[in-house]
Design a binder for these strands. Sequence first.
RNA 1: CGGGGCGUAGCGCAGCCCGGUAGCGCGCUUGGUUUGGGACCAAGAUGUCGGAGGUUCGAAUCCUCUCGCCCCGACCA
Length: 570
Amino acid sequence: MRASQYFISTLKEAPSDAEIISHQLMLRAGLIRRLAGGIYTWMPLGLRVLRKVEAIVREEMNRSGAVELLMPAVQPAELWQESGRWEQYGPELLRFKDRHQRDFVVGPTHEEVITDVVRREIKSYRQLPRHFYQIQTKFRDEIRPRFGVMRGREFLMKDGYSFHASFEDLQREYTRMYETYTRIFTRLGLSFRAVAADPGSIGGTGSHEFHVLADSGEDAIAFCPESDYAANVELAEALAPPGPRPTANQPMKEVATPGKIKCEDVAAFLGLGIEKMVKAIAVMRDSEAVPFALLLLRGDHDLNEIKAEKIIGRFRFAHDGEIEQQLGCRPGYIGPVGTRDIPVIADHAVAAMSDFVCGANKPGYHLSGVNFVRDLPVPATVADIRNVVTGDPSPDGKGSLELCRGIEVGHIFQLRTKYSEALKCSFLNEEGQPQTMEMGCYGIGVSRIVGAAIEQGHDGRGIVFPSAIAPFELAIVPVGYGKSTFVREAANRVYDQLAAVGIDVILDDRDERPGVMFADWELTGIPHRVVIGERGLKEGMAEYQGRRDAEAEKVPLAEIAALVRLKVCS
RNA sequence: CGGGGCGUAGCGCAGCCCGGUAGCGCGCUUGGUUUGGGACCAAGAUGUCGGAGGUUCGAAUCCUCUCGCCCCGACCA
């Protein structure tokens, strides 16, 4: 490729609405351009990256025996009504009517469609197992699209669905996909981690997420350095503290804590550690006749809403008015003492506390030296409702947990029969009896990977792409291409040599100053660069520099092609 | 959807308080000089000041309403 015939459109300054580094760099490097909130055009250079990611995903999926197809982006509402998700999915599902007033959706995922395909096509256990996948544009009307391509509304996704005659066979395929995904992300050149995950709204039993490790990631991951335990914090279990509750040493007394609302402030004001505080969170439960309830957490712990939902069902946080009506007190000073029949759900850590501090249900006052049994009943429900924190014991009993952040780029689920049952997707087993198929589902966020790779690979000069997905592997930068025949001929020769052996090379034959060319190829993250100028040519030399290298190295012109081949392949 | 902020040239911004000819840097065009790290000089072009209404002799500026975007809280690849 010659740069003069290609389209390079870089920006010196990033648009001010780009918040994270990958978004800024993608805009500056001319990889994407925004059309509407969460909707982007993939510019030529960006498309090359996207296609490379796609190709690796496709290759590995095929290698693992999955079969590619392409399903419609637009789907009739009937299928969604049949699975029940027409009601469940909410406003994230983009719905519209056609000219006949029939309801349709723009597919955010394709469980319904693939299950429909399979129930029509597959009748016998002899035709199973089967794994179909597609790489397709999806649409989810995200509440708050942000971070460019990382949380867009329109995005490119690989989604695969497997169908099995037995759960054992589903587990076999699940393991195979786990390995396939590991291979894919390794080939992409990303630093990643597979973690146990919450199956969430898609439903089913087992589930793993694949996260690209990056500080800007939206997910928190708990992992144990001493073992291979790793889980999304949403799921990671906080073990109950061992041993009996310490005995009460202090009398309960009311202390004035004017203006101290947050646990940290109260702790500091009283000169106590924050782990002696108990915070009460007032919630309204959807399912209960008496919706109001209090959740108790240790001061230094955070509520895990997913865990809490599993214990008490769907809920929302109570409004200030509701809290005041129930407890006669503003939030900030609420607590579990003297609340009579208000249901109290305590985290394990709270149940193990003694001589603690909590709100007095009286504005401006807290209670100290509070103890269960003596001052308030032991909560009826004690459960794991908090996020794990650094230093918590690992649930597998081997050492303690650490936390890091990740960008979810892949997710595999054992769906079991959630959709096959709803859509009556069955087959005849060996006994000739109808049986519901077991299903697995496997997603990879293709477009998100591009953003994630940049989050992980960048420096002051721009993007540092892994070789496997860089828009070009090599940029040849001739200094004086238009002026010097020597330079032009040498550059053309090197270009021809490398292009002939299949290296993805761009020759910068634009009439630009060297600084502009250097800056462009650094910004766009091209991993290898060869500079050919009259100065070096006089000594028969060219220059090679890797994107991560601090300095260029001089290489005899005759050897440059061989060196580049070596570098590109390593 | 709730809370906060911002919409002025392709991009980054000033001007708004205190109404009176719409500006700066980058980019773009033309010419010249340059040519190993985002050049310099000269001459240019580019704006429904997000939109609609109102107040006013006069609105980018004040008022009302709208739309869009960004940030903070409930979703997911």
